[in-house]
Structure formats: C-alpha cells, structure tokens
Amino acid sequence: MDWDSLQYFLMVARHGTLARAGQALHVDATTVSRRISALESALQQTLFERAPTGFVLTAAGRALVPHAEAMAAAAARIHSAGEGGAALSGQLRISVSEGFGGSFIAPRLAAFVAAHPELEIDLVASSGFLNPSRREADMAVLLARPRKGPLITRKLADYSLGLYAPADRRDWHRAVEAAPLSRTGIPVVGYVPDILYAPELDYLGEIEPGLRAGIRSSSILAQRRMIAGGAGVGVLPCFLAAGDPALVRVRGDQTIARAFWLALHRDIAPQPRIRAFIDWLDAEVQAARTLFIPAPGKLS
C-alpha cells in the first residue's frame, strides 16, 4: 500500500467530502473519487459509506486511519529531515470554544501563520466542539477533561470568570454591590439554558442560587456585546473582558474557576505540525497567564 493512496484516504476522512478533500490536495473531486475507489478495490474493503451529507468512515475505514496517520507522521519527519527542518505543510484543524478561539487564539495567530506559511489552518471556534476521537478535528480545547476515547489529554490553563456590568452604569455598580442581584431589577445576561453545549457554562447559580438570565444568547461574544452595550450584567471570562473600556467588573470578591483542557488523538500526537502548534499555544497561554487569572486586587 503506497503513501500516495493513503493521502487521499486521509483527506476524505478528515474533510468528509470529495470536494473539500480535493481542495486540500489541490486536485479535482473526480480524481479523489477515482483514487478512493481504487484503494477500496485493492483492499477489497469498503472504507466509506456514501451519505447525503458526505463520506462517513466504515468500521474498516476507522481501522485504517491509525495506520494512515502513522505513515503521515513518518512522511512529515522524512520531509523535515530532507529539508533541514524546513516548512511544515498539510492541514491543521483545531476545535475551540467561541470565546477562547475568537478572542485569544485568533488575534495571536498571525505569528504562527508567518512561521509556517505552508500549513492550512482551520480554527473551528463555535458553540460546541468537534471530536478528536472521531477524527473530526486534530485537536480540541475543551471545557472539561474527556474521560473516553483514544486521546491524549492535559490541562492547558486555569481561568477565572467574574460578574461584569456596563462601565457607564454606575447606578448598577452600586446596586449590585449592595443587594442580591435578583432583587435589584437589573437585567441579567447569560446563556440559553436548554441549549447549553457544556455543563461548565451553567454558572449563574455560583453568583446567586437560583439566578436566571432574562436576556440570553448561545454566543459568549454576543453576551459580551450586550453587557458592554448596556443590556444588563452578566458573567464573562476575565480574558474575554480584559481591556474593554465599556466593561467593569463588579463584586470582585466573587470568582468562578474553570479550566481549558487540550485533547488530541494519540495517533497524531507525534506529527510535527501538531507539536508545533501545541508548543506555540503553550507559549502564548503562558505569556498571557495574568489574563486568565488576574492578580488579586486587579479586576479586569
């Protein structure tokens, strides 16, 4: 079995459609289809189910993925050695929460892109996570440590959340400090409770038992804008609110603690592109550690 055939298989497994796999390989979808059919014929196995939404791995396909990933890692090492440790290439797909991906990774990504211009990077920053166990992403930054699957996991960073109010509503600042929030009549901004994508986001009760949001969004970036715009008060990650002059933290003695967890499939962990991104992300997180957990008395 040659590596060239397995590249086509891996791209379809990662992207789910012939068209997207073809784009990643810089060939047309017909070529990808022909190569997949030839590989299935050679192996005398069906590797993908053809579904309306795309190509889904069969049991035989899932069994082949670790071997293909191992060959990809070996090919990358050979390429790197041959080029004197030069450019990494291929696709890198990272699944992250909307807040962390949009406000922390995205503004800092230019340096990594400049260092590795031949990498194709998919930053999937949304409400919900892709699953590295099912090869939906190369790695994920999650709100809780996964307990199942062939994954390598570790804590990436602890972070704090606090209660924030619009900076120009000083009357709200005084009211929130003086009385239970539920008795002030001040609107509370938060998540839509019946579509929370992670239980770690159900934290209003840690501000006050039974506290409910009357202005809700599934997007933490939308919540930040609503609070800054004067719609109400709400809980935000400190790293997301930091440096925004339209926001003020109130009840500075109330802190909610959470953590980000890094997860990746163990078969791809040795790949140079994976190691390079993790090393870069670790360095960025370490450099910005005071954003994640502000020093006592320094409210962001």
Rank of each mutant, 00 (worst) to 15 (best):
H116R: 02
R225H: 10
G234F: 07
D282L: 11
T46Q: 15
A269V: 05
D168L: 15
F104I: 04
L299R: 09
H79G: 07
P180Y: 13
D244H: 09
A106K: 14
R225G: 04
G243L: 11
G101Q: 11
A125W: 12
E118M: 13
A276D: 06
H67Y: 14
R134F: 13
S5M: 14
I186W: 07
S160P: 04
A140P: 03
A178T: 02
E120I: 09
S5G: 15
S300W: 15
I36C: 04
I274G: 00
L221N: 06
L123T: 03
G229Y: 07
V250D: 02
I215Y: 12
L161T: 09
D279W: 01
G214D: 07
G54W: 12
P187S: 12
I121C: 05
Y191E: 14
G101V: 08
P296A: 02
M71G: 13
E49G: 00
G205H: 05
V124W: 04
F239R: 06
V235H: 09
M139E: 07
E98F: 07
G185N: 11
A72S: 12
S127M: 10
F292S: 08
E98L: 11
A140I: 00
A241V: 02
S182G: 05
R14A: 11
L47V: 05
R224H: 07
I105W: 10
M1K: 05
T30K: 11
F129W: 13
Q223I: 06
A283P: 01
L236P: 01
Q7K: 14
